[in-house]
Structure formats: structure tokens, C-alpha cells
């Protein structure tokens, strides 16, 4: 996976207004990259869920958006959310449907994972959390069987 430096965008995730900015910027970037409407919506929704996690659980942080392409020449967008919060105690549990610590529907992490092609969580207690997701253009989100 190579990163196109020109297309890197970094945005703060500090308050509610930032969430809206993140959604709008991700939508615009996905449109520019030629993502279909359903894919745009999936990525924007995942961005919204993860940005809210960064804000509520991580105490705020940032997101970077990178235009990427893989060896087969597929274009994609990678969103990387970083915070310096307390970290996730039990990632497996946090990834389970219905697990919520903030009174949501508990679909933040587990749900966003289903909206994208690639998903990774890097967390350490007391050192914050980094969640990285990638959606490739023009593929069903679960790929061929």
C-alpha cells in the first residue's frame, strides 16, 4: 500500500462541530476519488462513528485521511483516528455488537468494521488508541466469497 502524500488531510476531532467537518471532508474526498454513493455513505458513516469514539472515549484527538492505492492499482481511502485517551481495556469485547460504554447503541466499533474493507485497532492502556480503516473503491464491502 503506497501513500499519496498530496492527498493527506489532517483534521482535529475536539468537539461536535469537528464531527460535522470530518463527515463533510470525508464525503468530498470520497466523491473526488470516484466512490459510488453507497460506498461514500458507508465511509462517511464509519468516519462519524469512529470520530465520535475518538471524541467521547479518547477525550478528543485527530483523524488523517489518506488517498491510497494497492498493488493491483485499486484506489482507496484510509482514515486513521488517533487519541491519547485511556485506551481500550478489552478490544475483543469492544468489537462485539451491543457493547457500549457511552450509552450509544454499542455499534460504533463493531458496526464501522462491517462498513469498510480493512480495519485495525492499536491500543495500549493509558497510551491512547489508533483506529485505522480503509475502503477500496468499487468493491462490495465483504469482497467475493
Amino acid at each position: 500500500m503506497s501513500t499519496d502524500e498530496r492527498a493527506t488531510v489532517s483534521l482535529p476531532v475536539r468537539n461536535d462541530a469537528d464531527l460535522m467537518t470530518v463527515r463533510q471532508r470525508v464525503r468530498t474526498l470520497a466523491q473526488e476519488l470516484g466512490f459510488g454513493l453507497v460506498q461514500q455513505t458507508k465511509l462517511v458513516t464509519a468516519a462519524s462513528e469512529l470520530a465520535r469514539n475518538t471524541l467521547i472515549h479518547g477525550g478528543g484527538g485527530s483523524v488523517t485521511v489518506d488517498a491510497v492505492s494497492d498493488a493491483q492499482g485499486r484506489d482507496g481511502l484510509t482514515l486513521t483516528f488517533r487519541d491519547e485517551g485511556s485506551g481500550i481495556t478489552d478490544v475483543d469485547r469492544a468489537l462485539r455488537d451491543g457493547y457500549s460504554t457511552a450509552g450509544g447503541l454499542g455499534m460504533g466499533l463493531s458496526g464501522s468494521k462491517r462498513l469498510v474493507h480493512e480495519f485495525s485497532v492499536d491500543t495500549a492502556l493509558g497510551e491512547g488508541t489508533t483506529v485505522s480503516v480503509t475502503l477500496w473503491r468499487g468493491h462490495a464491502s465483504h469482497g467475493p466469497r
Binding site: 453507497v38 468493491h139 462490495a140 465483504h142 467475493p144
Partner: peptide, 11 residues
Amino acid sequence: LDSARSQVVME
């Protein structure tokens, strides 16, 4: 019906 086709059907 594979995943790709199901997606097209749904949309």
C-alpha cells in the same frame, strides 16, 4: 448469489 451480486441486487 455471491456477495458482489447480492450488493447489486440490493442497490
